[in-house]
């Protein structure tokens, strides 16, 4: 009985994952931190604290950027989205207070105020190749040409925001509504057969699409070049905290390890996050995220020394049930 239930739950999960990768699925991402940062100096201060060139922010165009410490290590990956009189900052789940504190610490005489609106709002993501079509049907908005981080207001939801982030390395539209409107928003998509995927499906999708997360990859143990966050780094902007380290690592090609996608066959035992990775008995890195098995394959993410990141490289991980053979299938941040 338990086996049948477990099999059923796996089949549902596979079907949800297929919806997201082949069609469109709804994922509740309300746990993502949301800060409303306002004040005349907000963009300038964030530009001095993070890796991307926020001088290029416009009232209609936002961008991703990485907060780094003075050693060039990751504090968090942020999405900065311009709203009418403020910036909406999406942080990693649970990181909003740390990010607000970081901004506050570096605010001296600047006109900058942060408000945590995470609990007052909900955020649902419409993910998949047919997500634009799903948004059109559910909200009546044409988003075919909507650029990344360029928000639009959704009048039928009292000024809710819709922004394309492609968070899952698939077309991804984030719909940010007041908490009171959350059920109505989910229902609008449900009526057009955009089913809600479970949190475990969302996590499997994240890992299979090599999206780094605060739970394993976006930490102060790693720098943004190791994490594959190069699209969010400007190498010709003004100084920001950690720039000297990040620029030197890039200029002298001193990045020692990279975040990679890994696969393993499900007949093998399941390795755990944190497990050391070895090649020929030598430590070459560590696992950071491990997904559930799906269609005979398991997916994982890990940081691996650059000599061992070529696609097809075989790497061993030790689990409680024995050795697991994993194969590198690509670098994170490169599709």
């Amino acid at each position: 009985m338990a086996l049948a239930e477990s099999k059923n739950s796996r089949l549902i999960q596979i079907s949800e994952l297929e919806s997201a990768t082949l069609h469109a699925a709804l994922i509740d991402r309300s746990d993502v931190g949301r800060l409303r940062v306002s004040g005349d100096d907000a963009a300038d201060l964030l530009n001095r604290l993070s890796t991307n060139n926020l001088e290029h922010l416009t009232p209609t165009q936002g961008m991703g950027t990485v907060l780094t410490n003075n050693k060039g290590r990751i504090i968090d990956l942020l999405s900065v989205i311009p709203l009418a009189n403020s910036l909406l900052i999406l942080t990693s789940p649970g990181r909003q207070q740390q990010v607000a504190d970081w901004i506050e610490f570096y605010t001296f005489v600047e006109d900058v105020t942060s408000n945590d609106i995470t609990d007052d709002t909900a955020m649902i993501a419409i993910v998949g190749p047919k997500s634009a079509e799903a948004v059109q049907k559910a909200l009546g908005i044409d988003v075919d040409d909507l650029e990344l981080y360029a928000p639009i207001m959704v009048d039928s939801f009292d000024g809710a925001s819709l922004v394309r982030t492609d968070h899952f390395n698939l077309p991804t539209f984030e719909f940010i509504v007041s908490t009171e409107k959350k059920d109505k928003a989910i229902s609008a998509f449900d009526q057009h057969n955009v089913a809600q995927a479970s949190s475990s499906t969302a996590e499997n999708l994240r890992i299979s699409m090599a999206v780094p997360s605060a739970t394993g990859e976006l930490t102060e143990d790693f720098n943004p070049l190791e994490a594959g966050l190069r699209p969010h780094i400007s190498f010709n902007k003004i100084c920001y905290i950690g720039q000297e380290v990040v620029s030197r690592l890039n200029a002298y090609e001193k990045v020692q390890k990279h975040l990679v996608k890994l696969e393993w066959k499900t007949e093998d035992a399941v390795p755990a996050p944190g497990t050391p990775l070895t090649v020929d008995g030598k430590n070459v890195g560590q696992l950071t995220s491990v997904g559930d098995a799906d269609n005979g394959l398991g997916y994982a993410l890990g940081y691996v020394r650059k000599a061992n990141v070529e696609t097809g490289t075989s790497i061993l991980a030790q689990s409680e049930d024995g050795e697991v053979a994993l194969t590198v299938t690509g670098l994170s941040g490169q599709g």
Partner: peptide, 12 residues
Amino acid sequence: VGVKGGGCSGMT
């Protein structure tokens, strides 16, 4: 005279 956030090391 003052300090502001930014610069490679954190404050300028």
